[in-house]
Design a protein around this nucleic acid. Structure first.
Length: 296
DNA sequence: TTCCAGGGGTAGA
DNA sequence: TCTACCCATGGA
């Protein structure tokens, strides 16, 4: 076994524990959060093989990443790992403008000083999209089950830990409809996930290009809504994970939160939910997220 | 048994 | 653009 170490520094303070708790992604394979040791674990396919990534807090400004692989990593593979890890931890997010807005909101005034604001991400937009589809119209426990079966049945296992990486689009596309429905138990989501995997694996759809796209958020949203299985909630969630915070993903939780905080418990719709955080402008979804976090 | 969860697709108006 | 209805799954 080979181990390679990197130290990753962010744009401002970085808190690994806050990242791990920023939303549910650290509970979904192939990620895992070890609360006692403060370790964020992930198995990741690098080149043809899978390797094990272990993140720990280095100091206030940075995180140490240890990669355990069967063979030594090439220079290109090191670069790829660092690029993916920086994206996962949102290390290049500049939250200065968001923090200034937080300081004017009594409910979020604590966010800047605590170093909150970053959201944990998957290394690929494809993985984000599949996982987001697995959150729709189901419980969180079932989402975890769907993703676990997807990873364990179709992902490439690490020869070091035998834990599996997230399956690539080719593996999911090749699995077939019956496996996705009956074995992974994706339910009515199975054809959506399969079609998405086919579109990405054939090159018909370039999801990864959305990360560095210069398109306006409205245009990116339009592109996401064209994907079967992705509606307004999922598109908004994916935009947030792409660093575009213009739209709030309206789910049952958002309805309850906005109703209670801003409308005295009266039922609210899409317009009321988006409008509740208008004061945060293009940061409204991030503001909503940290209202929500305090109630998790 | 019925409801609903971190909704979305489709048809019809 | 809005509404009604249907869609698997599993726990409460």
């Amino acid at each position: 076994m080979q181990t390679t170490r990197f130290v990753l520094r962010g744009h401002g303070p970085v808190r690994l524990d806050l990242l791990a708790h920023s939303h549910g992604w650290s509970q979904l394979l192939p990620m895992a959060w070890d609360e006692e040791q403060g370790l964020l674990l992930r198995t990741e396919q690098i080149g043809a093989a899978a390797a094990d990534l272990e993140f720990r807090q280095a100091d206030e400004q940075g995180v140490e990443l240890t990669v355990a692989s069967e063979a030594p990593l090439s220079r290109a593979e090191c670069d790829a790992v660092v690029t993916r890890a920086r994206w996962m931890l949102a290390l290049d997010e500049d939250l200065a403008e968001f923090y200034r807005l937080c300081e004017m909101d009594p409910y979020l005034a604590h966010v800047p000083s605590e170093g909150r604001g970053r959201l944990l991400r998957s290394p690929s937009v494809f993985e984000e999209a599949v996982k987001t589809i697995c959150t729709t119209n189901t419980t969180w426990a079932q989402t975890k089950g769907m993703v676990q079966r997807l990873v364990e049945k179709l992902g490439r296992p690490s020869p070091v830990s035998m834990r599996s990486a997230f399956p690539d689009p080719q593996a999911i596309a090749a699995a077939g409809a019956r496996v996705l429905k009956d074995e992974v138990r994706l339910g009515y989501r199975a054809p959506y996930v399969r079609q998405l995997a086919q579109q990405v694996s054939t090159g018909e759809l370039d999801l990864e290009a959305m990360r560095c796209s210069s398109d306006a958020t409205l245009e990116l949203r339009r592109q996401l809504l064209q994907i079967k299985g992705i509606g307004p909630y999922a598109a908004a969630t994916l935009l947030v994970l792409l660093g575009r915070y213009d739209y709030i993903g309206v789910d049952s939780w958002a309805r309850k939160l906005v109703s209670r905080h801003f409308y005295g418990g009266q039922p609210v719709g899409e317009k009321e939910i988006q409008a509740a955080f208008d004061g945060f402008g293009r940061w409204r979804a991030l503001a909503y997220w940290f209202y929500r976090w305090d109630e998790m």
